[in-house]
Design a protein around this nucleic acid. Sequence first.
DNA 1: TAAATACTTGAAAACTTGTTCAAGTATAAA
DNA 2: TTTATACTTGAACAAGTTTTCAAGTATTTA
Lengths: 102, 102
Amino acid sequence: MEVVRRRISYNKLGKVADIFSGLAHPTRLEILEIMEDGKIYSVGEILSQLEIDPTLLTHHLSKMKHIGILKSAKEGRNVYYQLAMPEITDVLDCIQNCKIKH
Amino acid sequence: MEVVRRRISYNKLGKVADIFSGLAHPTRLEILEIMEDGKIYSVGEILSQLEIDPTLLTHHLSKMKHIGILKSAKEGRNVYYQLAMPEITDVLDCIQNCKIKH
DNA sequence: TAAATACTTGAAAACTTGTTCAAGTATAAA
DNA sequence: TTTATACTTGAACAAGTTTTCAAGTATTTA
């Protein structure tokens, strides 16, 4: 059997895998569900929609920011987060349409 | 700020997150790159294209099978794997087109 | 029937991630 | 200026994942 020429380097696959890791948690998907409209949300606004500890939310948000899924800006005493990878909304639409047995 | 009605249950988000976990490893993405043509591949054929230990490949394949990304069938002394979620090829196309800084 | 091939199993070790806790910083309001 | 609000930090622990190792099974070939 012939060896297939690799189209994507292992290194790039690693970066893509990191993005998938960023999506591989139900709370982070909930956060993306809130943010998928592309609007800006403060941590407090996100917090008010999730039943989760503020510290844990910060950890999830900073992970998503570090991966490049979200970006943030401080204004006064609030920190505002926003989607930084709008392509991800397509992935979310796909999830909304897809039928998973539950 | 009004509380948004959740469109997807936490439970379903958990299942979606499991699928993303299945994609969250460079070797598993390499496997999908091989399998994205929808054809059937034996473990040995996959092995010949990856520099990886057979045991580790089995572990990755069985994880992907368990999540529902792949399916398998035994024939003689070979085991053949195949994509079970063809939607995933769209995701791979998307990765191929997407520009990640490296 | 014995040996080789193709793959799997399950447990242990090594590593990574998720969660909680106790404190810390920056800004705004009293 | 003290106090409250909004959020972050980092360390400690728990939980999960990846990798390796030492067998093990099923099927075919010799």
